[in-house]
Every structure is written in structure tokens, then in C-alpha cells.
């Protein structure tokens, strides 16, 4: 039996979840930029955004995170660990591409070593996704074999009603069911007609691209230089990406004490691969852009059997020089493999 959550009940839900000790997070826009942020009232949400400028990743993998505190004395080194906050959270109104992004990164963070900073947050967060009824020129989930109503990575999927007054509730996991049992009396039985999901045209043939990337001869192709000539080497694509996950350790402090932090890093930076000797194996920007594409569509799937891209389009949407995954893969699909 499908149930319905009406928009005018959402404020009560938020209050109820907050009473139950959950931090309620959702898409929020202030004058200049948007992100997933904590709210106190449902009115703070902005569901009209195609998606927030900043991806959901930062809620699980913050841009800077203290890991341990160290002190160095004459004959000994003491350390004490930071642990991720234990607070429980519900993210209401995630986009399917953002939720999928988290699921894509799970195997990475749990592969040879279980990254507690990631998983503790994953385990204590309920993700309520809203299917998209709108998309823009940059959305490309369908090209990645996902969809505007993908359930991947979500605990609950909501489908907006045609009358725009609420959502059909589709519970997908126990965690999602628990969160919605909390507000069961605020839901209604029945299923009003859902609004049609957004139409997202397929932009490239993924299989053809992957085949081209897997051909070792193409590693040194002149294509890479041509396509990335205008790349300026900033990290906005990687930092806004819900699936890019590279990080760097930094010790902040001095010889005697300090904090070791885990900071976002990016394959776009020349410094990313710079050796102490000054030699840089990825000496040019085209080699760095190639790495980003290869990693997402060749190496990552080779290891984890899933592409490291959910098609949110942020990398193209926010690129200062109008590059991005879409353009590159579109170009690759037209090349002979």
C-alpha cells in the first residue's frame, strides 16, 4: 500500500524527527550559493533547485577533517584520535544522482580498510531522495544508466505528486522504514498520481566510451591534449563531484604538537602527483584530465565494477571554461575504438 506525505505536513515531520534526536538536513539556498544544510523548519528547504551547487559528499566526507592530535616529546610520540560525530541524521530531499554517488563510493571506502569516518556517517544517516521532475542541460544520469528516479543509495524514494502538494512514499530499506514509522501518523494512505519524472536525454554511448578507454593504445592518443587544452587546472569539478574522493593528509602544527587532517585533494592539481625530487609523472594538464576520465570509467569500474560518476553534471555546470565529463565522453563516443 503506497502512502503519501503531504507538503503541509512536512513541517510537523521535521519537528518530529528533530524531537527524536535526528539532525534534519536538506537542500538550502542562500543568496549566493546552495548546499545540503541543516534546517529547523521545513520552510528552509528549497525543492525547486535542480540540485544544490555543492554535492552531498561533504556531509560524509568533509572538505577538511581532523583525524588525530599528536604531541612529540623527547622519547615518545603520543596521539589521540578524533572520531566522527555520532549524531543521527536524516537528509530529506537528496537528488538521485547524489544518493547514487554515495553508494558508488561505499566500496572504495570499505575496500582494504574500512574508513570509519565515512561509514559511521553512512550508518547513522537516513537518505530520503526526491525523484526529479525537472532537469537542466547538464543533467546526464541516463547516460550513466541511472535515472531521475533511481533508488540507488537511497533509504526512501519520494515521487512528487502531480498536484505538487506532496509525495508518494516508497520505503526501500529498514533504516528508511524506521524513520518513516516515526511519522507514520502524518502520512496518508492512497496514491495520488505522480508527476512525470524529468526527461533526460542520453548524451553519449557509455559502452562505446568504456571500450575506447580500455584500449591501451588510446592512452597516448593526441585526443587528450586536444580535449583538455582549455582546462585551467582548478579543482572545482572534483570538489563538487559527489563521487570524487581523493584526499591528502596534512599535519597542521609544529614539531611538538599538532593535528593531522584529511583534506580534499584533486587530480587536477599539478601538486597532486609532484615528487619530492621535483619530477612530476603527470606533468601536463592533459595527463591530469586523462587521469580523471580513466579513473572514473576505466580503473574504478575495473576494481569495483561500477563507474565513478552518477551523472549529476556538476563538473560541466560549474566549470569556469565550460569543459566536463559530458563533452569529453561525447567526443570519445564518436572516435573509432
Amino acid at each position: 500500500m503506497t502512502r503519501i506525505l503531504q507538503s503541509d505536513k512536512l513541517d510537523n515531520c521535521v519537528a518530529r524527527w528533530r524531537e527524536a534526536g535526528l539532525t534534519v538536513i536538506g537542500p538550502v539556498k542562500n543568496e549566493s550559493s546552495s548546499s545540503y544544510a541543516a534546517v529547523e523548519k521545513a520552510a528552509e528547504f528549497d525543492f525547486s533547485l535542480i540540485m544544490p551547487d555543492r554535492s552531498i559528499k561533504e556531509l560524509f566526507f568533509p572538505q577538511t577533517e581532523p583525524m588525530l592530535h599528536y604531541t612529540i616529546k623527547k622519547q615518545r610520540i603520543d596521539t589521540s584520535d578524533f572520531t566522527p560525530p555520532p549524531e543521527k541524521r536524516i537528509i530529506f530531499g537528496a537528488r538521485p544522482c547524489d544518493a547514487s554517488g554515495l553508494a558508488i563510493d561505499d566500496p572504495l571506502f570499505g575496500w582494504d580498510y574500512k574508513d570509519n569516518f565515512w561509514f559511521q556517517r553512512r550508518d547513522t544517516t537516513v537518505i530520503v531522495t526526491i525523484a526529479c521532475t525537472k532537469a537542466d542541460d547538464f543533467c546526464m544520469c541516463t547516460s550513466l544508466k541511472l535515472a531521475p528516479d533511481s533508488t540507488k543509495g537511497s533509504d526512501v524514494l519520494l515521487r512528487p505528486l502531480q498536484n505538487n502538494k506532496g509525495w508518494q512514499v516508497e520505503e526501500l530499506t529498514d533504516r528508511g522504514r524506521d524513520a518513516f514509522n516515526e511519522i507514520a501518523d502524518l502520512l496518508q494512505d492512497g496514491s495520488g498520481p505522480a508527476a512525470p519524472t524529468a526527461v533526460v536525454a542520453e548524451k553519449f554511448n557509455l559502452d562505446a566510451c568504456v571500450a575506447w578507454l580500455q584500449n591501451p593504445e588510446n592512452f597516448e592518443s593526441t585526443f587528450w591534449r586536444e580535449i583538455s587544452m582549455r582546462c585551467i587546472g582548478c579543482a572545482s569539478c572534483t570538489f563538487l563531484c559527489p563521487t570524487c574522493h581523493c584526499f591528502d593528509f596534512q599535519d597542521e602544527g609544529d614539531t611538538y604538537s599538532g593535528i593531522r587532517r584529511k583534506n580534499w585533494d584533486s587530480c587536477s592539481f599539478a601538486l597532486f602527483t609532484m615528487h619530492t625530487s621535483g619530477h612530476n609523472p603527470r606533468a601536463t594538464q592533459s595527463a591530469r584530465w586523462r587521469q580523471r576520465i580513466m579513473h572514473k570509467f576505466n580503473y574504478f569500474p575495473g576494481k569495483f565494477n561500477v563507474n565513478s560518476c552518477s551523472g549529476c553534471g556538476r563538473c560541466s555546470r560549474q566549470c569556469p571554461v565550460d569543459m566536463g565529463i559530458t563533452e569529453t565522453l561525447q567526443a570519445i563516443s564518436t572516435l573509432p575504438s
Partner: peptide
């Protein structure tokens, strides 16, 4: 703030 644990 730099010495405090991450918030979320």
C-alpha cells in the same frame, strides 16, 4: 574551530 572535531 581548527582544533575541534568535524561537526557533521
Amino acid at each position: 574551530e581548527t582544533e575541534a572535531p568535524a561537526t557533521f
